[in-house]
Amino acid sequence: MTEPRIVVCVKVVPKPEEVRVDPQTRLLERANARAEINPPDMNALEMALTLKDRLSGTVEILSMGPPYFEPVLRVGLGMGADHIHLLSDRAFGGADTLATTYTLAHGIERLRSVDIVLCGEESSDGATGQVPQGLAEWLNWPQLTLVTELEIDMERHVARGQRSIKGGYEILEVPLPCVVSVKTASNEPRFMDFRLKAQAASPGRMKVWDAAALKTDVNHTGLAGSPTRVSGLASAASRERKRERLTGTSEEIIKALIEVIRNSVM
């Protein structure tokens, strides 16, 4: 039986609480924010590594971004991934989901013979949750989304997953190759194994692909390939708790509570 070749899409994101909008310039200040692997992508990585524990095969990390993401991505090697592919070119900058998925899809096509692509449910920065499906569309592959459990049958060449739906779940089966999005917090990502971490620094474990290597069309990548534009930015209301005491007669308090409930959910 052949062993699966698994690709996990990983995004490096700034820690959300350290990102600010400059009140004067109205621009996003993220330069000083610490970087981390997008937490939902850690769940995808863990699911891929669990499959590798069971079926052998390889787990490769695919990411798009500037070269300085490298040390953060190498964390994935410490967890047990085999290789990193970083798609990095100035032409890829400023991409929205259409351009991002186009570029990632090119990366996967260039890798050839990939059996399954795993993605986190969404990113903590953009939070669009559209990359897995968009990627599947560019590749013309089937998709399994919001999966909490996943099996691969290499003999029948299918993937079977448990997809979360409103109030429950469904079990779906699709032929390989396919794209899977892993439901956030559906597993606990393993910590780095320090024996692997020592090897993770080896330069041979990472390959950087630029636009020329990927043979991407400049009209489809980066800002040029992105239909959407950000026309305004603002900091959301402060996340400091208000600690406001509701006082008065019990009727007044209930009325105030209903007002709060209305404003937050109704």
């Binding site: 981390e36 850690m42 606990e188 910590f191």
Partner: peptide
């Protein structure tokens, strides 16, 4: 369960 998450918090 729970201990890897604690170490990840130490890390990030």
């Amino acid at each position: 369960k729970g201990l890897p998450s604690m170490l990840w918090s130490l890390y990030w």
